[in-house]
Amino acid sequence: MSDDSNLLSVKDLSIDFLQEKTAVRAVDQVSFDVKKGEVLGIVGESGSGKSVTVTSILKLLPENARYTEGSISFKSEELLSMKEKQLRKLRGNEISMIFQDPMTSLNPVFTVENQLVEAIRLHAKLSRKKARQEAIRLLQIVGIQEPEKRIKLYPHEFSGGMRQRVMIAMAISSSPSLLIADEPTTALDVTVQKQIIDLLKELQQKINTSIIFITHDLEVVADLADRLLIMYGGQIVESGPAKTIFANPLHPYTRLLIEAIPHGNKKSGRLPTIEGNVPSLSEIPQDVCRFKERIPWIPDQAHEINPKLREVEPEHFVRCTCYKHFWMKEAHEKK
């Protein structure tokens, strides 16, 4: 933890949501590090806790959320005990965030110039004129053509992909050391998605920011992320270098996520599926392998009780021992 190369270090983070009388655990014992200049991909479906995990870093969680355990340290400073005033200095300055919906993240009544200049002047003491020049430079960086002209437009005059570029420009305006991207391409078309991913890759190399990229689609982060966290039901089920995970996915959930994306045609048969549904947080079984219900072909005794993440090869962690029995799936399907 005193490791200087770690920009962000999250340890044993647990977050509960209070609902009427009960508390629901949304994030359970999550630990991860983000190194300087690294891209970390967090992959999971709805209810996996991935978004809660990252919004918790900026302490932007809704009011009924409670940090029950753990620590989040950023540049060796503990965020959880930090005062709101200090946090505000971090937000949008050291740590920036971009969201899924570029439509609603921009204020429709102001021009892009207004919003971008404001964002710049919030962090740097620049004159309006200087800030405007900086804004144009940023728009150029994120690949918007004719930025001098476009800067005068309103958000609705931009396409979805362009708006996301503006959001990225705004996010990098303070040269943050950490950029959190929460499903930034989900609402966009495939061709635009590719452009945005390429842009992030380029930026990451140019300005050397660390990026946390959240997505539900493993393939989106395939050639962007250095390391991956796969989350299910509020826990990390597998983590490791992206290359290792793609070459050797171990946890049944990871394997099924990769297989569930069709790569052939109908003649190759039905798609491998994961049974059941993504459970809502309150339905998640505790103290057992959370994925158990969805892989009924793996016998009960193959699961651990209260499974922990275990290092199976250097830097590659997997939760529960059930992954060793994945091969039983074929026999199960023949039945």
């Binding site: 996520l257 069709p262 109908k266 798609l271």
Partner: peptide, 14 residues
Amino acid sequence: LDVSIQAQVLNLLL
């Protein structure tokens, strides 16, 4: 739909 659910629904449609 979530990725893991997509495959289920596609199979069902087939």
